[in-house]
Design a protein around this nucleic acid. Structure first.
Length: 621
RNA sequence: GCGGCUGUAGCUCAACAGGAUAGAGCGUGGGAUUCCUAAUCCCAAGGUUGUGGGUUCGAUUCCCGCCAGCCGCACCA
C-alpha cells in the first residue's frame, strides 16, 4: 500500500491542484466502506472555510484515471477509494519479498546496551538492548548503512565499587575470579549490594574508593589492572547474555580509551573559543566553566568543567558524541574482540597495537538511553549546535524509552518489599531480575511445552526450539509497549506463550512452513493464482499490504511496538483464515492455488517483520 | 518550586497527524478437533477515556485549570 499511496499522492495532488501534503490517507473503519480514504476534503475545506461534504463530492468527481482505483465514493466529508483487488493482489504477491521503503543516505550509528561492567545485566538492560538491536535490524533491512556500538564505562564509580569489594572485602585477585562458584557477574551482583552498604557506614572505604577511581582514570597500578580485568570479564559475560537473544555489535568503545585518546582537550578548546561556555566569576559555580541555559523562563548555569579543572559527565559526553559524528580529528586504534558464530566480527577500541578503522563519522547517531537522561541528552545536542554544527546536532537523536519496573506481584514473589504498584529496579539494593535468570526461566517453561507436544524429538532439537521460543517471548515482550510507557514487568506475562506474544508469531509461521512442507511431500503443484473476490481473502491481502508503511513509520518514530502490534494483527488474520479455509485439502484447484498464494504473501511479510523483531522461527512447535 | 511523561474495560496495554460504531491480549463464562499443528479459532459479558472548562462540523487526541502517579532538575556517572 505504501507505494500506491505515494503514487496516488502525486496524481491526486495534480488532479485537484492541491499541495502533496494535503493529500493524506486513512483507512475506513470497515473495508466494506472502501479500501482507502482520502482526507483532503477535511484539510482543504477547513482551511478555506468550505462545506466539507460538498467539497468532498467536488473532489471525488475530479478523481479520474487513478492507478489501481476502481471506484471513488463519498460518505459525508470522507472520500473513499475502492481498489481493483485482483490487480492489487497480483502486484503485491509478485513483489512480496521486496521492501519498498526508501533508504536514507548516510551512515547511521546506533549505540545501545551500555551496561556498567560491574555486575550482571537485568531486565531493564534487556529493554534497551532489544530496542536498539531491533531498530538496527530495521535500518539494515531497509537498506541503510548501520553501525552498532556498545559503550562501556570502565572508569566509573560502579566499577570502582566492585574492585573494592573483590580486592578489599573478599581478597580475590583477578586470578581467583574464575573460582567463585557461580557465574562471575552474578557473584558481583550480590557483592555490589554489600559494597554499597559498606560505603554508607565506612568513611575509610569511601576514601579507598576515591583512590581506586583515580587509578582507573590514570590507568596504572594494581587497581587499574583489576579494573581492566573486571570490566573486560563482565563485558564479555554481558555479550554472551545478549547473544542468547540474537544481539550482536560491531564495536565496543571504552571510556578509558576515550580519556587516553584525549578527545576532551580539543572539545574544551572549541567550547571556549566559540563562546559555548564561560567561566563563572561569582555565585555557587564560581570558578567553573558553565553553559548558559534557560528553563521555564529562568536563566540557569550548567557546570561543564568543575572548579578543580576536571570535566563533568556531560562534558565527556559532548566530546564523545562529536567523535561519533566525525567532528574530531583524533581516532582510536582497533582490533578484533571476538568473532560471532554468525560470522560477524566484533571490534574493540584499543590502546595497544591496532589498526586504523572506519568507525564513527556517522550522519545520524541514535543513543538508546532511558528517558531519565533526556535533560542531559538535550544539553549535549544543544552544545553541538552552539559549537556551529547544526546538522550534526540535528543528527543526534536520543532514542528514549521509559524504564522497566517490577510489578508488585512479581516483586513479592521474588521476595522483595513492595510498597506501591511498581517496584523500581535498583542495582545498588540488588532489586531486580537478572537477564540470565529470566532467559533460563523462560527456556525451561518453553522446554516443558515442547516436551508435551513433541516427545519424539531428540534432546538437543527440543532445546534448540525452546531457546528460540524463549528468545522470541522475551523480545516481543520488551517491544510490545510504546517507548514512553513504563514496562511493568510481570513474570507471569513474560512467561506466557499465548495471545499477544512472540511465540504466537512463530506459531503462525511454523504452521505455514509445515503446510508448505506437506505440499512438497505430496508433490502438489499449484498453477498461477487467479484472484477471486471474497471478503476474508481481501482482508488478508489488505492487512499484508501494510507492512511497508508500518516500517516507514517505525523508521521515523523508532516505535517498534507499532511493528509488533501490526505483525500480531496480521498473524491473527492469518490464523482466522486458516481455521476457516482448508488450503491443501481444498478440492477445487483454482481456489487451492489462490489460498496457497495468499499464504505465501502472509509468510513473506511475517518473515520480514519477525526478522526485524529478532524472532527466529523454529522447525516445529 | 521548575521541567518532562503518564492517567482508557477487573488486570496489562492500543488507537497512526483531530475523523466514521474507542480496539487487543490476559482473566471470567460458554463453545469448536473424523480435515493442512488447538501455543489455534468462535461467541458473550466488560467503557461517562482521572476531573472541570474551552476550541472545532467532530476531541482519548489540541489549549487552560484541578486531582493522582512516575521521572528529571549535582562541581555523581
Amino acid at each position: 500500500m505504501y507505494w500506491l499511496k505515494k503514487e496516488l499522492q502525486k496524481r491526486i495532488s495534480s488532479l485537484l491542484s492541491i499541495p502533496p501534503e494535503d493529500v493524506r490517507f486513512d483507512y475506513p473503519p470497515k473495508l466494506s466502506m472502501g479500501d482507502l480514504s482520502l482526507l483532503s476534503a477535511f484539510i482543504v475545506g477547513k482551511r478555506e472555510g468550505k462545506n466539507l461534504a460538498k467539497l468532498a463530492k467536488d473532489f471525488a468527481s475530479r478523481l479520474r484515471g487513478l492507478p489501481m482505483v476502481e471506484e471513488v465514493s463519498t460518505a459525508g466529508p470522507f472520500i473513499n477509494l475502492r481498489l481493483n483487488h485482483g490487480e492489487f493482489f497480483h502486484r503485491l504477491h509478485r513483489n512480496r519479498h521486496r521492501i519498498e521503503v526508501e533508504p536514507k543516505e548516510g551512515k547511521n550509528l546506533i549505540e545501545h546496551t551500555n551496561i556498567n561492567p560491574n555486575k550482571a545485566a537485568h531486565v531493564g538492560h534487556l529493554r534497551n538492548a532489544v530496542l536498539g538491536d531491533s531498530y538496527h535490524r530495521l535500518l539494515r533491512k531497509i537498506g541503510e548503512e548501520v553501525e552498532v556500538q556498545n559503550y562501556i564505562d570502565d572508569t566509573g564509580v560502579q566499577v570502582a565499587d566492585v574492585v573494592f569489594g573483590l580486592l578489599k572485602m573478599r581478597n580475590l585477585r583477578p586470578g581467583d575470579w574464575d573460582r567463585v562458584g557461580e557465574k562471575f557477574d552474578h557473584y558481583c551482583w550480590d557483592l555490589y549490594v554489600e559494597v554499597e552498604r559498606r560505603m554508607e557506614e565506612d568513611p575509610e572505604a569511601l576514601k579507598e574508593r576515591k583512590r581506586i577511581l583515580k587509578a582507573l582514570e590514570e590507568g596504572k597500578g594494581e587497581y587499574a589492572e583489576a579494573g581492566r580485568a573486571l570490566s573486560r570479564k563482565i563485558a564479555s559475560l554481558h555479550l554472551e547474555t545478549m547473544e542468547r537473544l540474537g544481539i550482536e555489535y560491531n564495536l565496543l568503545t571504552w571510556e578509558s580509551h576515550i580519556i587516553a585518546l584525549g578527545l576532551w582537550a580539543k572539545t574544551f578548546r572549541l567550547l571556549k573559543e566559540r563562546g559555548v561556555i564561560r567561566r563563572a566569576q561569582e555565585g555557587p559555580n564560581s570558578g567553573c566553566w558553565v553553559m548558559d541555559l534557560e528553563e521555564g523562563g529562568e536563566p540557569r548555569e550548567k557546570v561543564i568543567v568543575r572548579s578543580d579543572g576536571t570535566a563533568t559527565y556531560v562534558a565527556k559526553d559532548i566530546a564523545y558524541q562529536m567523535w561519533k559524528l566525525g567532528l574530531q580529528d583524533k581516532d582510536f586504534k582497533y582490533k578484533i574482540f571476538k568473532k560471532y558464530p554468525s560470522g560477524r566480527l566484533l571490534y574493540t577500541t584499543t590502546l595497544e597495537e591496532g589498526e586504523p578503522g572506519n568507525f564513527g563519522r556517522a550522519r545520524r547517531v541514535y543513543n538508546v538511553i532511558d528517558s531519565r537522561q533526556s535533560y542531559l541528552q538535550k544539553i549535549v545536542k544543544e552544545a553541538i549546535r552552539r559549537l556551529g554544527y547544526p546538522e550534526a546536532a540535528e543528527g543526534s537523536v536520543h532514542l528514549s524509552y521509559e524504564m522497566v519496573a517490577l510489578s508488585k506481584k512479581s516483586a513479592l514473589a521474588l521476595g522483595f518489599q513492595a510498597e506501591g504498584e511498581a517496584v523500581s529496579i535498583s542495582g545498588r539494593k540488588g532489586i531486580g531480575i537478572k537477564a540470565d535468570d529470566l532467559i533460563r526461566a523462560v527456556e525451561e517453561r518453553a522446554l516443558q511445552e515442547v516436551e508435551k507436544r513433541h516427545p519424539e524429538l531428540a534432546r538437543n532439537q527440543k532445546e534448540d526450539i525452546a531457546r528460540k521460543i524463549a528468545s522470541a517471548a522475551i523480545r516481543y515482550y520488551m517491544l510490545k509497549f510504546t517507548n514512553n510507557s513504563v514496562v511493568l514487568f510481570d513474570i507471569e506475562d513474560a512467561l506466557s506463550f499465548e495471545g499477544e506474544t512472540g511465540p504466537y508469531l512463530q506459531y503462525s509461521l511454523v504452521r505455514i512452513n509445515s503446510i508448505k512442507a506437506k505440499a512438497k511431500e505430496r508433490g502438489m503443484d499449484f498453477g498461477p493464482a487467479r484472484w477471486k473476490e471474497k471478503e476474508d481473502y481481501w482482508a488478508l491481502v489488505h492487512s499484508a499490504s501494510r507492512l511497508d508503511e508500518v516500517l516507514e513509520k517505525v523508521r521515523e518514530s523508532a516505535e517498534l511496538s507499532l511493528l509488533a502490534k501490526y505483525l500480531f494483527s496480521l498473524a491473527q488474520a492469518f490464523n482466522l483464515f486458516y481455521s476457516k479455509y482448508p488450503i491443501l485439502n481444498e478440492k477445487e484447484p483454482e481456489e487451492r492455488a489462490l489460498r496457497f498464494a495468499l499464504m505465501e504473501l502472509v509468510e513473506a511479510k511475517l518473515k520480514i517483520g519477525t526478522y526485524i523483531l529478532g524472532i527466529e522461527i523454529p522447525e516445529r512447535m
